[in-house]
Every structure is written in structure tokens, then in C-alpha cells.
Simulated scan of single mutants.
Amino acid sequence: MELPVNPPVEPMLAKSVPDIPVGEGMTYEPKWDGFRCIVFRDGDEVELASRGGKTLTRYFPEVVEQARAQLPARCAVDAELILIRRDGDGRPRLDFELLSQRIHPAASRVRMLAETTPADLVAFDLLAIGDEALVDRPYTQRRARLAEALRGVEPPVHVTPTTADLATARRWFEIFEGAGLDGIIAKPADIAYEPGKRLMFKVKHARTADVVVAGFRWHKSGPVVGSLLLGLYDDSGTLHHVGVSASFTMARRRELLDELAPYRKGVTGHPWRHGDHELGQRIPGGPSRWTGTKTLEWEPLRPELVVEVAYDAMEGDRFRHTARFARWRPDRDPRSCGYDQLERPVRFDVDQVLAGDPDPTG
């Protein structure tokens, strides 16, 4: 592969900010919830490079085919791999969990998943085209070249919609979550493409919930708390594992062990020790393709302790990312910690987002 910009290239990143930033020439676009991917194409040779330099090429053969069919013959395109769930019981929406299942070691399963759950490619920046490198050009010029180069693409290849109107960006932030999107990206007009630098801005949804602490895992470094295992009750009174809270200093991990000590005593009939995946209960444990041989053993606690956590989004019936510890809630009855307290976004059609027709009434 001989391009003006060759792999490996670390993607340019975004800095988290609490509110949508305002600035002259600022451009706003949806924040896609998928796998960041720089697509390098040199004729028939295609490389899908993930953030961190790992290759995604073997896992997404259908995207490689689309890159050969629809991208310029020689280019480097910054994009997102997404998976749109179309299960017939509602509007199409992004599904990160299904996308995660695409990373599989078996070639036969990779081929099967490429047919049954194909990914889409959403392009949002152009690093090189032909023999020309564009990384030193201002973002507005790169965006214009991207729109020109990909003018004729058709699904499953897309060019992300953008707006320079702040009111529109705020509206997108409110309604696009219902299609499974992650927030808003803001890009200053004059920024060059600097790999690994946080020169863009991202705004994500932030919420809080009161959850039951029903167990914990040990930290890999020794006898201190590694993560808290969090639960919520459904309408039938079943406690489901919904995620973890894990970002603590070492001093705080030691303190947590003392704070949890009373709840380690007298644990009988724990709802997760006798839970059943087959009956639809989400319980902790079991290695995955992400954890490999890492132990996921956990210590049960009497489910009597409530904590308030901050979270950004749900993935089905669990927290999409690690929840952030806010404070203990000794005033809350654990049985009152149910799914009904969670804010559910209005369902929205991701196809409308990709088509640049963000009308929630359509």
C-alpha cells in the first residue's frame, strides 16, 4: 500500500465538554456509537484500521467489498463502523452489542455474521485522496473534499450529516439518542488533522440512577475492591445485573472494602447465585471474547446497599459504559431501585439521520 497517508495512523480525538460549544465556523455532527475506523484503499488493497492500530479488516469482509466498490481508488477515510438493527418491531436503531459480536476468531462465523448482521460505514473526514495528503488542510476543506469524493455513495456507505446551526445541533442532541446515537461532535473550522490529539469536542448524555450494590470483584493488584456490581429490579421483583462502577483511587478501594464489610456477612439465598440466564435474568460472571481468560469471579453482598451512579446511556437493559460512583444512598429502599427510574429516549429512526432528514415526526 503506497498512499500519501499510510497506516498506522492514530485517529484524531475529541475532548469531553459539558455543553455544546459555540464558535465561529463550528460544525456539528452526530456522534456515532460504533467502532472508529480509518479506511485505507489503494486499488484492490483495503485496510480497516481501528483506534490503537489494530486491524478490523478480517472481521468485516462486507465493508472491504463496499470500500472497493464505492470509495475512491486511492484514499484514506476516517469513519465509523456501525450496525443497524432492523428487527421489525420498531424503528431501525444502532446496536453496539451486535456490532461487538462481529469480533470473532473463527473465520466461518465471521463469514456468517457478515451476511446476517452486516455493518454500515459512516464517513466523516478525508485524510488523503489520490496522491494528495489533506491532513494539513483545515477541516472545512477536508469536509468539502469528502462530500465531493463520496457524492454518489449509497447505503451501506454514508457520509455523516453536518450542520453549522447551533439550534439544529441542540435539537439533534435531544432526538438522535432515540436512534442509538451517542451525542454530538463539534469541530472547529480551521483544525488540521492531528493524529491522537483531542482537538474536537464531544457532548454526551449524562444521567444518574440509584442502584443496588449486590457484589464486588477484587482488584488485580491485591485485596482491595476492583469494581462494584450493580443491580436493578424489574417489575416482577427480579434483580438484574446492569453494570459496574470501577474508577476509584487505590485509597478509595481500601475504604470501600471496609464500607462493604458488614454486607459480606450473612449472605444467604443471593439472587445472582441462584439466578438463571435461561429465564432472562442478567447475572454476573462468565468470560467473553473481550475478557479472554481474565477471571470474572465475584464476591456476593447482601443486596441492601444503594448507591447513586452517573451513566450516559443504556445498551438494552444494562449500562452501556462503566457507571461513575456519586454517593451512597442510605435513605433508599433497595427494592425501590427499578428500571422505572431510567430515562428512556424517544424512539427515532437511524435511517433518517443517515439520510440527512432528522424529522422526529416523519
Rank of each mutant, 00 (worst) to 15 (best):
R253Q: 11
D357Q: 14
H277M: 12
T295V: 03
L354M: 14
T293S: 09
P330I: 01
D42Q: 15
R264Q: 09
L181T: 04
F319D: 11
P360W: 12
V17Y: 06
H241F: 14
A128N: 02
P271Q: 07
L239K: 07
F216G: 03
P30R: 03
A206V: 12
L260H: 01
K15N: 09
G266V: 04
L150F: 08
G269M: 00
R329L: 03
L98D: 10
Y139K: 03
E299G: 03
L228P: 04
E45P: 07
F216T: 04
N6R: 15
T208A: 14
R143L: 14
V110Q: 07
P300R: 07
V353P: 12
R302D: 01
N6H: 14
M26V: 01
I191K: 09
W272S: 00
D42M: 13
V153I: 07
V135S: 08
H158Y: 14
F248W: 06
L279S: 14
G338I: 13
R282T: 15
P138Q: 06
R198Q: 15
G152E: 15
R252H: 14
V211L: 01
P7E: 13
P118N: 01
T163R: 07
D87R: 13
G215W: 08
P303A: 00
P300V: 07
D87I: 05
L83S: 06
Y139P: 03
V22S: 14
L121F: 08
N6A: 14
Q141W: 12
E115G: 10
H158S: 06
L305E: 00
T162D: 06
A355D: 13
A73P: 00
P303K: 00
T208L: 13
Q341D: 07
E2I: 10
R137N: 05
S50M: 12
R264A: 03
G130H: 04
A14S: 13
